[in-house]
């Protein structure tokens, strides 16, 4: 009999710490892509009923740490945390993406400045408050970024690019820390 040992995308790469800033790998969680068939209204109701989560508006998320819905595109969301109930599949294309993402957390003083070195979107709290979500570029990569606190962000990038993700963010961390004070 085979035995399959699971490995996370950033195993061996993280955590990285520089001057109070840390980049860590988030605990593995179920990630499902929901793409509504013909309008999201019914899907929203179903999502609320099944997982107690509202359908996220563009650029926003709903829910809390253990169960979240992140806006992912027109009529699309990423469901984070719970295993979706089968009934959801009546309303949307439901795709397991749990293993597709390198999912990391950047936190500490200057986290905004670190991302400002890589991301062409205004991620300052005024423009990008807690719970906000952006699908954008992180240097050369596609990424999804969400703010989880005053000094913390979660970043999702392609699993295969984990090494580049860690490299790019670490270099930016070094630069920000060196320029302090």
């Amino acid at each position: 009999m085979a035995e399959l040992i699971a490995k996370t995308p950033c195993a061996g790469l993280l955590p990285v710490r520089h001057g109070g800033l840390s980049l860590t790998e988030c605990a593995p969680t179920a990630i499902h892509h929901l793409a509504a068939y013909r309008g999201a209204a019914q899907l929203g109701v179903a999502l609320e009923k099944a997982h107690g989560l509202g359908w996220p508006a563009p650029g926003r998320s709903t829910g809390a740490a253990s169960a979240r819905a992140l806006w992912f595109g027109p009529d699309q969301a990423l469901l984070l945390g719970p295993m979706p109930v089968a009934a959801l599949a009546r309303h949307c294309a439901l795709t397991d993406q749990s293993d597709g993402w390198a999912h990391v957390c950047l936190s500490g003083p200057g986290a905004e400045e670190v991302l400002a070195r890589l991301v062409p979107v205004d991620l300052r709290a005024g423009a990008f408050p807690e719970g906000a979500v952006a699908r954008t570029a992180l240097f050369h990569m596609s990424a999804l970024i969400t703010r989880t606190g005053a000094e913390s962000f979660e970043i999702f990038a392609f699993r295969s690019m984990a090494r580049t993700l860690v490299h790019d963010v670490s270099e930016a961390m070094k630069s920000v820390v060196a320029q302090r004070g």
């Binding site: 793409a35 068939y37 699309q76 795709t95 993406q97 597709g100």
Partner: peptide, 13 residues
């Protein structure tokens, strides 16, 4: 057409 698609290249080895 009512169809949606998503890349699962990264999810599957």
């Amino acid at each position: 057409l009512d169809v949606s698609f998503t890349s699962v290249t990264e999810h599957w080895a």
